[in-house]
Design a protein around this nucleic acid. Structure first.
Length: 476
RNA sequence: CGGGGAAUGGCGCAGUUCGGUAGCGCGCACGGUUUGGGACCGUGAGGUCCCGGGUUCAAAUCCCGGUUCCCCGACCA
């Protein structure tokens, strides 16, 4: 029998239990590393493929760069090396011999891609250059958690170079929107787009933007970032072009990334005490067909019908599976609920007789989510039901998040707000202020949301007049 | 990296105090009966007791060292 610790009892244990019981991942024999099993990888693939399509739709191409980065490259951008050196894995021996120059295993690829861009870009005609790379990176984290923070993690990193800051800024915002759209539309994870505070920005960036999500325990998860790198890396790596006016200019570069951490967000935003709940658009299996019968004569007619239902949906382009295992129906119901399959179709003798099927929605527990529909209308009804489930999950998550964001105007209000969700408070963008708040409340500055009411308020810490609110929460 | 907890079959655990044949539930395999919300009976397989040293006639158990996981903190764009 599956053992899933109730969410309310111990959220961390619940999260780990769900990953194990839903057969998504296993621990690897290497510190902080996980093995993603087929069911988990299939989910990641669906997310990856949809993001990839969005990248292609916005004019990007994929390419691959080495995982080894000469140490000297990382040292060329002062803030960059400062930010990443504590978590580097470094190769010092190759082929049994000490290397002349140690090679870092990429923690991110700005440097080596910058080096290549410097060689490829000669003229304004070569710009913009819009490349994405699907790869894995290594960051030696002190404390790891499956999907949320692992030593090695899979992600994509986009790297672009532009002739003007206007162009690069537009790219940074375009990709932030791509991430937000993917999170909301496909993962059903509501996110807040915002600008990172000075203390939280990427090492080497001028401005970092992120999308922030609220997990089921009201903690924050940064789900993707998009960086305006200004000319910092162009300067460090000599990425120049000859402009129309025949003068040599530095490029403006961007980078942006989303990792399999988003998969962790999907687990934590939608999951319940019975396991995963997956949005249909990314679920490895969208519809599970469970046959029910008592004896051989029932079995043959039920299986005939179940098989026909299966093929109808397969033909309709749905990801469907017929569960013909020799288990009881009750066992199968629970098993697929644990794995988060959005829609279950039951086919039993009564359904064969009535030419109906029973359908049960994963997003609505118990009888409320169960109904009977005629077999002949399946091809018509199921896609609509899946849309409803997708929308239902997003609506539930959005309502939960909105109910737990508290707009506050004093530090006292702030302190109680971050004990139970996010606080939205007028604040100056000052690393010392972020540090003070984190020290005193454990909450961190998630971002200054891009979309917020206009006005003028007093910073809850310094009393200075400010024109925007910061979003704070305890974070993963 | 600091503080706390833990590691015994796939999962959950007992056994460790006081050294003496490694157990239980679930799962797994096979046979039968079952099957509309986690079925039942029978038979059976499966264990370097986290790893490496040490003490001892004898170590899951005692001693030393290490690894991994969980919780809290520090660190982490």
């Amino acid at each position: 029998m599956a053992i899933i610790t109730p969410r309310s009892q111990d959220y961390s244990e619940w999260y780990l239990d769900v990953i194990r019981e839903a057969d998504m991942a296993d621990y690897a024999p290497v510190r902080g590393c996980i093995v993603v099993k087929p069911y988990g990888w299939s989910l990641y693939e669906n997310m990856r493929d949809q993001l990839d399509r969005r990248f292609k739709d916005t004019g990007h191409s994929n390419a691959a760069f080495p995982m080894f980065i000469p140490m000297s490259f990382l040292q060329k951008e002062a803030q960059h090396v400062k930010g990443f050196s504590p978590e580097l894995a470094v190769v010092t021996v190759g082929g049994g011999e000490q290397l002349e120059e140690p090679l870092a295993i990429r923690p991110t690829s700005e440097t080596i891609i910058g080096y290549m861009y410097a060689q490829w870009i000669k003229s304004y005609r070569d710009l913009p250059i819009l490349i994405n790379s699907w790869n894995s990176v290594v960051r030696w984290e002190k404390r790891t958690r499956p999907f949320l923070r692992t030593t090695e993690f899979y992600w994509q990193e986009g790297h672009t170079a532009h002739a003007t800051h206007e162009d690069s800024t537009a790219e940074v915002m375009r990709m932030l929107d791509v991430y937000a759209d993917h999170a909301v539309q496909e993962c059903a994870v509501p996110v807040i787009r915002g600008r990172k505070s000075l203390s939280e920005r990427f090492a080497g960036a001028e401005i970092t933007y992120s999308i922030e999500a609220m997990m089921g325990d009201k903690k924050a998860l940064q789900s993707a970032t998009s960086h305006d790198l200004g000319q910092n890396f162009a300067r460090a790596f000599d990425i120049k072009f000859l402009d129309r006016d025949n003068t040599e200019k530095l490029c403006w570069t961007t980078s942006w990334g989303m990792s399999w951490r988003m998969l962790g967000a999907v687990i934590m935003v939608h999951g319940d005490d019975h396991g995963l709940r997956l949005p249909p658009k990314i679920a490895p299996i969208q519809v599970i067909v469970v046959p029910i019968f008592k004896n051989d004569s029932e079995k043959s007619s039920v299986m005939d019908t179940a098989d026909r239902i299966f093929h109808i949906m397969k033909t309709a382009g749905l990801r469907v599976k017929l569960d013909s295992r020799d288990e009881t129906p009750g066992y199968k119901f629970n098993d697929w609920e644990m794995r988060g399959v959005p829609l279950r179709i039951e086919v039993g003798p009564k359904d064969v007789a009535n030419k109906t099927v029973a359908v049960a929605r994963r997003d609505i527990p118990g009888k409320a989510g169960k109904s009977f529909i005629p077999q002949e209308s399946i091809a018509l009804r199921v896609p609509g039901l899946l849309d409803d489930i997708q929308a239902g999950l997003l609506a539930q998550a959005t309502a939960f998040r909105d109910a737990n964001i508290h707009e506050v105007n004093t530090y006292d209000e702030f302190k109680s707000a971050v004990e139970d969700g996010f606080a939205l408070a007028p604040l100056v963008d000052d690393p010392a202020v972020d540090a003070k708040i984190q020290e005193e409340t454990k909450a961190t500055n998630r971002c200054f949301p891009l979309h917020q009411a206009e006005g003028e308020w007093e910073c809850i810490i310094t009393g200075q007049k400010v024109h925007e609110r910061a979003l704070f929460g305890k974070a993963y």
